[in-house]
Simulated assay, not measured.
Amino acid sequence: ILNGEFQDQFVVDVYQAGAGTSHHMNVNEVIANIAIEMLGGVKGDYSVVHPNDYVNYGQSTNDVYPTAMRIAALQSSKKLIKNLYALTETFNQKAKSFDSTVKAGRTHLQDAVPIRVGQEFSGYAASLLKTTRGIEKSSESLKELGIGGSAVGTGINTHPEYAGKIVEKLRKMTNLDVRESKNRFEAMQSNAPFVEFSGALRTLSVELIRIANDLRLMNSGPNTGLAEINLPAVQPGSSIMPGKVNPVIPEMMNMVCFSVFGNDVSIALAAQAGQFELNVMMPVIQYKLLDSILIITNAIKVFNEKCICGIILNVAKCHDYAIRSLGIVTVLNPIIGYSKAAEVVKESIRTGKSVKEIIQQWGLLSADQLDLVLSPISMTEPHSKNSNV
């Protein structure tokens, strides 16, 4: 079964009788019949191996199913973590290669002070690293297994050493650092660990949407948008407009993240719907969580390999925005004062002249002083004072 055989024998739909009993018994029956045939018996002859009396001995859906849920989520998340670290590293590499290029910073989608493209991309890398570590941290609670609790957590019909031995066996089989729950009643009643893990995926999705949208804006154009970067062309962008290329990979990423949001809502609603010793909504919790892990894992790999790795920087366009940004006047605040700097901005907007031209025209600073102060690259690092001015 673990090698993928007999998949056609697992016929129960995810939307089933509550708590996963139907699926659990489906598994028990498949195991029983495989064993019966291996022992020379006839499939269905439960006098040889009974699905309840033998396969399910000492077990209950109520401790087996949530244990399987935890192991499945932990196993599935390994590839997600790997892909996230790879994406973070790609952003770090881009940050290094783009670090000598200055662009206009933007706040409220308006001109702000200059920033290096490398600094911007380093922020993306740092946020992804934080969310990755958040996912790793949230997985810790999934490692606490309530197996051995049997029907309601009391361990009825189990040997006193059963829980410890099966957890040790699972640890060796899965290479996961799973452990016995300190309180099997809590492990059975509460599905908070799945809510926590799904919440970490939601946080990741928030960051990925933000980053993807920034890239879409930076890529906008080519003639009437920002055009600061070129994203790799993946497919024709229009069925009617020839030559149009769309940022389809970031758009794909957005849609995947929206789906993760929807799954997270379903998981939260299902998790709060438990009563007393059991939550009967476990099948939909697991279905939605595994779906989120699967789609965001695959999306991150595509996002990295077919988009981020191939970003090309339009250096001249970035530099042009940097020197034209009205935000550069901010560096003059310590020299001419905020109010006078604001007058310069207003005059620049009114006349269409650059900030540098206005300052020279008004005789506020010499040309040499302006060249020193309005150096875009120097504005991307802190300075204690403009001592040279």
Score class of each variant (00 low, 15 high):
20 G>C: 13
23 H>G: 12
28 N>Y: 13
29 E>G: 12
34 I>Q: 02
39 L>E: 03
41 G>P: 04
44 G>W: 06
48 V>P: 00
55 V>T: 11
56 N>C: 02
59 Q>W: 05
61 T>S: 04
62 N>I: 10
65 Y>W: 06
70 R>I: 14
72 A>C: 07
75 Q>W: 01
78 K>V: 15
80 L>H: 01
84 L>N: 00
89 E>L: 15
91 F>R: 02
96 K>Y: 03
100 S>C: 04
100 S>G: 09
101 T>F: 03
101 T>E: 05
102 V>E: 04
104 A>E: 12
108 H>T: 02
110 Q>H: 02
116 R>N: 05
116 R>P: 03
118 G>W: 06
119 Q>I: 11
120 E>Y: 10
120 E>K: 07
122 S>E: 10
122 S>G: 13
137 K>P: 03
139 S>A: 13
142 L>W: 04
150 S>Y: 04
154 T>E: 02
156 I>H: 00
158 T>S: 02
159 H>I: 14
164 G>I: 11
165 K>R: 07
166 I>S: 01
174 T>F: 08
176 L>D: 07
181 S>R: 03
181 S>P: 09
184 R>N: 08
186 E>C: 11
190 S>Q: 10
195 V>S: 05
201 L>N: 00
202 R>K: 15
203 T>L: 12
211 I>E: 01
212 A>V: 15
215 L>K: 01
221 G>Y: 06
229 I>M: 09
235 Q>I: 08
235 Q>A: 13
240 I>R: 03
243 G>I: 15
247 P>Q: 13
257 C>T: 02
261 F>I: 15
262 G>L: 09
268 A>M: 04
272 Q>A: 10
275 Q>C: 05
281 M>P: 00
293 I>W: 07
296 I>F: 06
296 I>Y: 01
298 N>D: 11
298 N>E: 13
303 F>T: 08
310 G>W: 09
316 A>K: 15
317 K>D: 01
324 R>D: 03
327 G>W: 10
329 V>N: 02
329 V>F: 08
338 Y>D: 00
339 S>Q: 13
340 K>I: 14
347 E>P: 05
348 S>T: 14
352 G>T: 07
368 D>R: 14
374 L>F: 08
375 S>P: 00
377 I>D: 05
377 I>F: 12
378 S>P: 07
384 S>E: 13
385 K>C: 12
388 N>V: 12
